[in-house]
């Protein structure tokens, strides 16, 4: 359903992405792992053009587009068919919880207000925040804000949801509530690409793990393959540093 080919991106003299290929099928739950600087966030952000790739081809549902010479229509098409969940939630500060979730429907997709509100409320129910409709982001905890962010993403019924380290900015005790929601979405068949450090998540629900380092995909496979039988030396090095020694045998 979604395919990225030969993606390159440099920031000034820094070559962050050095030719990355990714393939996503419907229902896939893909986790991208890697040390900081590996380019995983940049890759994710280049999918919905928050970063403009220097080179690459993106194919979404049979529609091909050049990632560097993309037209406004292409970008709009991608953005209307994907959704992004930010590390820092990025809820619209000047809008209520309900308005945050309906904004994408009413304004971007011209959904009539009544229908949009219904959809929004059911999305908020899914994340357990249907009682906070009229509150503003500043009044919510980090975990709650992120849940609203997820509801905002689900409400527009995207083909794939992009999660950029969704729990990294949360206090430890709030990570669980957000993680469980994302896990539930995964089990329900939502297609998603998740950049995260939460290994438990990868093991529980991912069907494909991609390990990136230094701007390239080093290795990819099922969670079992990557965690228990990594083939590349770089992968092994990374896992050694991240995983508690007793849990996995490298």
């Amino acid at each position: 359903m979604l395919k990225l080919e030969d993606v390159h991106k440099a920031f000034g003299k820094n070559q962050i992405l050095k030719g990355v290929d990714i393939e996503v099928n419907k229902g896939d739950v893909i986790v991208i792992l890697g040390p900081s600087g590996s380019g995983k966030t940049t890759l994710l952000r280049s999918i919905n053009f928050l970063e403009k790739a220097d080179k690459g081809k993106l194919t979404l549902d049979d529609r091909e587009m050049d990632m560097h010479h993309s037209s406004r229509k292409d970008i709009s098409y991608v953005r209307k068919n994907t959704a992004f969940v930010f590390q820092n939630y990025c809820l619209f500060n000047n809008k209520t919880v309900l308005q945050n979730v309906t904004e994408g429907l009413i304004v971007a997709r011209k959904v009539p207000k009544k229908e949009a509100v219904e959809t929004a409320i059911s999305a908020l129910k899914k994340v357990g925040l249907e009682d906070k409709l009229d509150m503003y982001p500043a009044q919510l905890s980090g975990g709650m804000q992120q849940r609203v962010g997820i509801a905002r993403a689900i409400a527009v019924n995207p083909k794939v949801i992009l999660f950029d380290e969704p729990t990294s900015a949360l206090d430890p005790e709030l990570v669980g509530e957000v993680l469980s929601i994302i896990k539930r979405l995964a089990k329900e068949g939502t297609t998603m690409i998740v950049v995260t450090h939460e290994m438990s998540f990868a093991e529980d629900v991912a069907n494909k793990v991609i390990f990136m380092s230094d701007g390239v995909v080093v290795e990819q496979g099922s969670p079992k393959e990557i965690f228990y039988k990594p083939k590349e030396e770089r992968t092994k090095q990374f896992l050694k540093r991240i995983l508690p020694v007793s849990d996995y045998v490298i």
């Binding site: 919905n48 709009s76 930010f86 990025c90 619209f92 809008k95 527009v156």
Partner: peptide, 30 residues
């Protein structure tokens, strides 16, 4: 105004102009 506000707006499908007038500008005014 935090850049994330603009990014969240466009990633949801709003055009740049919509994002500016509905999300960024009101906060800048404050």
């Amino acid at each position: 105004v935090d850049k994330g506000q603009y990014e969240a707006g466009v990633s949801i499908g709003l055009t740049e102009i919509q994002t500016f007038f509905r999300i960024v500008f009101p906060q800048a005014l404050l």
